[in-house]
Amino acid sequence: MGAYLLLILAIVSEVFGSSMLKITNGFKNLFPSLGVIVGYGIAFYALSLSLKTLPLGVAYAIWAGVGTALTAIVGIIIYKEEFNNKKLFGLVLIIFGVILLNMGGTH
């Protein structure tokens, strides 16, 4: 599996795990709690495999930035959290930050 596909798997798994945190009730609800554990387990495993070929700084920036943006979007869509211009601006900054880091190359 390609490094970027592994990174995508890591991002999706992390977003799933983070999204499940909201409904674990302090890890008192079994299935959402298992979702957190499995989601983060897959995320870190896939991220570690992607790092065999991707530079650490670039991979982590993509993983953290895209994961944060997608988790915020899940919060807005699934959990009906407030969406306003400040959140939109923050999401745009995250996306542009990831783009700029990738344009920086690996020198």
Results as ranks from 00 to 15, higher is better:
65 G>Y: 04
69 A>Y: 06
16 F>P: 03
49 L>A: 11
34 L>T: 05
26 G>C: 10
51 L>G: 02
106 T>I: 13
85 N>G: 08
34 L>C: 09
68 T>N: 10
87 K>R: 14
86 K>I: 14
38 V>F: 14
4 Y>K: 01
88 L>V: 13
105 G>D: 10
71 T>N: 10
99 I>G: 07
81 E>F: 08
89 F>S: 12
58 V>Y: 06
59 A>N: 06
2 G>W: 00
34 L>P: 09
85 N>L: 14
28 K>T: 15
30 L>A: 13
106 T>P: 01
49 L>M: 14
76 I>G: 08
63 W>V: 01
64 A>Q: 08
105 G>F: 09
50 S>V: 02
95 I>R: 03
17 G>Y: 05
40 Y>I: 05
27 F>M: 09
103 M>Y: 12
19 S>P: 06
88 L>P: 08
40 Y>W: 10
40 Y>K: 06
3 A>R: 11
99 I>Q: 05
80 K>C: 02
44 F>E: 00
42 I>A: 00
21 L>Y: 09
99 I>F: 14
41 G>V: 02
41 G>R: 00
49 L>S: 11
37 I>A: 12
53 T>W: 03
101 L>P: 01
101 L>I: 15
88 L>W: 09
96 F>Y: 09
63 W>D: 00
70 L>A: 14
73 I>A: 15
57 G>Q: 02
95 I>M: 12
62 I>S: 10
1 M>R: 11
30 L>G: 03
31 F>M: 12
52 K>T: 01
89 F>A: 15
41 G>F: 02
96 F>D: 00
30 L>K: 14
24 T>P: 11
93 L>F: 13
93 L>D: 03
48 S>T: 09
59 A>V: 02
